[in-house]
């Protein structure tokens, strides 16, 4: 098996002519962490619902762990672990009971089950609270239990649908290291959806940007950022009135391209931003233009998103 997940031309619309997916195609390779990045309503959750057999597409096909999601949903379910956007825990059951039942539904039983449950409770630092009803647990603990539940039967493919949405920054960081640890386990492929650019950048080996129900860009984070060719250089002028002189002076600097002005802010691109700055400053000084601040930034996924979806990323 080379692909953990394949989706081909998936379409799905909801009553009222709401198009959720509009021909989405993607491939997740075995053992990799694949990020699906996009704003709310882009179609990420619908994709996960189809791949996890919860929903049926209007058209298109998909396989998970080698099984067709439409023809053999039962086989798919045995091979996957799912952490949904909304927690699916039984609030009135203890952590241990939640895990035990989940294991039983996957056919894990006897000693194998108890030792797996203990192992997961320890691993996710939940052993102390294991006997208490989940209802009283903190959001972070509940989220960790969600992940533990998805792992109880050692799935081949793990789906994490916005696993850190709604978590405190600290808890979020902790969850990130947890996911990174899971990713290191190379026998399992992970499909992660997120609307946090930094999350996708940090966790995903490859990612796809979804917008309007289709993939608009795909590649490793470095590749996607590399397509933008070069660093962003931002120069803030002291006086907005200097714009005409600044425009003329900066035109003489060969290393800068795609120059644009926005009030006092001059933005440009350069293959090596740091090396272009001295030349730009010298040219501006000769023209008598004062510069207040200089910033050089590596391209971010935000820039990638801007380029492919045609607008700033607003999560």
């Amino acid at each position: 098996m080379t692909s953990a997940v394949t989706a081909h031309e998936l379409t799905k619309s909801y009553p009222g002519h709401v198009t959720a997916l509009d021909g989405l195609t993607l491939t997740v390779r075995a053992g990799e962490v694949f990020g699906l990045l996009g704003p709310n309503g882009a179609g990420k959750s619908t994709t996960v619902k189809i791949l996890t057999t919860l929903a049926r597409p209007d058209s298109g096909s998909a396989t998970v762990a080698g099984h067709d999601v439409l023809r053999h949903p039962a086989r798919v379910r045995r091979a996957i672990g799912v952490v949904a956007q909304r927690s699916g825990l039984d609030p009135m059951a203890s952590g241990r009971d939640n895990l035990t039942l989940q294991g039983r539904l996957f056919g894990v039983r006897g000693h194998a089950l108890t030792s797996r449950v203990d192992e997961l409770l320890d691993r996710f630092d939940l052993a102390g609270a294991a006997g208490r009803n989940v209802r009283g647990w903190s959001g972070g603990m509940q989220r960790r239990l969600d992940v533990a539940l998805a792992l109880v039967h050692r799935p081949e493919v793990l789906f994490l649908d916005e696993p850190t949405t709604g978590l405190d920054p600290e808890v979020r960081t902790a969850m990130w290291s947890e996911i990174a640890r899971l990713a290191a386990d190379e026998s399992m492929a992970i499909l992660l959806t997120t609307h946090y650019l930094d999350e996708a950048d940090r966790l995903a080996a490859r990612l796809a940007i979804v917008d309007g129900g289709r993939i608009v860009a795909e590649g490793t984070p470095a590749q996607l950022k590399g397509e933008l060719q070069g660093d962003a250089v931002h120069l803030e002028l002291e006086r907005p009135a200097d714009e005409p002189q600044a425009r003329q002076a900066i035109g003489t600097v060969a290393r800068l391209r795609e120059v644009s002005f926005d009030g006092r802010l001059l933005s440009a691109r350069a293959d090596d931003g740091a090396a272009a700055v001295p030349a730009a400053l010298a040219a501006l000084e000769t023209a008598g233009v004062g510069v207040a601040t200089v910033t050089v930034a590596r391209p971010s996924l935000d820039d990638v998103y801007l380029r492919h979806a045609g607008r700033r990323f607003a999560a």
Binding site: T53, V82, G88
Partner: peptide, 9 residues
Amino acid sequence: TMNRLLTTP
């Protein structure tokens, strides 16, 4: 919980 259960066997 329903969606969680429905993604299990």
